[in-house]
């Protein structure tokens, strides 16, 4: 009985992990198979004909993959930097400063969490079109500059920072900005790591918004680029398509593995999931 109790959680978790990882495995498997085997349902890892080199070469040469990656990088970093630069002071003020209307503002932040991007897509698109900003990096980044999720996450984490340290810093002559960035954020690095992973993964993988505001293939981030790619190929070569998908997923996996420990600390500490 004790043995069962010991193994049961692992069994359940293992099943969960299997379900989550299966699509990635399938993607990778397809990317090394030849067209003849693509629709084979077998999960056997070694294909009869090893087409990895062909598929990956094709994915890398058919479309400007490096260009897509660079676009993705520019968009993700641009969004992340502005999000952190705006959300950290806002969260600090909401968590640690006393001013009238603080509770109301915090309520608005939480309420804003409930508004999906799709609801705002049309007005944002019209606005960007009027300003003649469609087909720019800015158009892809602008709607995400102010992240209420980031404000909320940092607020949760900053709240637990000891008030006495902030007061000691005020007596020592720190400015509020130095306290905010140099002490409080410093004490919440796991949250910063967690948020960075959330933000970068979400915007790296975002297809919806770039598809709306970008038609120029030179500005396309990876998922949109893949879409152009499959159009070019009329969806015929799944092996190469999956090779492309594997290529654009890899940076995110690396990014998560690097920040993994902080990421987990960040979400468990702040009670955000």
């Amino acid at each position: 009985m004790a043995r069962v109790r010991q193994f049961l959680p692992h069994l359940v978790l293992g099943a969960g992990a299997f379900i989550v990882l299966l699509p990635f495995y399938w993607m990778f498997l397809t990317s090394i198979r030849s067209p003849a085997e693509i629709f084979d349902v077998s999960l056997w890892p070694i294909p009869k004909q090893f087409d990895m080199a062909v598929n990956y070469e094709r994915a890398a040469s058919q479309v400007p993959m490096m260009r897509f990656m660079l676009n993705g990088l520019i968009v993700c970093l641009g969004i992340l930097i502005v999000q952190v630069a705006t959300a950290v002071p806002a969260a600090y003020a909401l968590a640690k400063l006393n001013f009238p209307g603080r509770k109301l503002l915090l309520t608005l932040v939480i309420a804003a969490l409930c508004v999906p991007i799709q609801a705002l897509a049309l007005p944002l698109f019209v606005g960007l079109a009027k300003l003649d900003l469609l087909n720019t990096y800015f158009a892809m980044m602008a709607p995400f500059f102010l992240s209420v999720f980031a404000i909320f996450l940092f607020h949760q984490s900053f709240r637990s920072y000891p008030d006495e340290i902030i007061e000691a810093a005020r007596m020592d002559g720190f400015s509020e900005m130095e306290i905010c960035w140099g002490l409080v954020l410093r004490g919440s690095l796991p949250s910063l790591a967690a948020f960075s992973v959330f933000s970068v993964v979400a915007h790296w993988n975002d297809l919806y918004w770039p598809m709306i505001v970008v038609t120029d293939i030179n500005l396309a981030p990876p998922p949109l680029g893949m879409l152009f790619f499959s159009d070019v190929e009329s969806g015929a070569n799944y092996g190469a398509l999956m090779a492309g998908a594997a290529l654009i997923t890899a940076p995110m996996i690396v990014c998560f593995l690097l920040a993994r420990r902080h990421f987990i600390a960040g979400i468990t500490m702040t009670g955000v999931k």
Partner: peptide
């Protein structure tokens, strides 16, 4: 005046050392 302009030093109950 702001706390820092008063030239006072304070020792807190929790010591309030800068952790990093």
């Amino acid at each position: 005046l702001d706390p820092s302009a008063r030239n006072l030093a304070m020792v807190f109950q929790s010591y309030a050392l800068y952790p990093h």
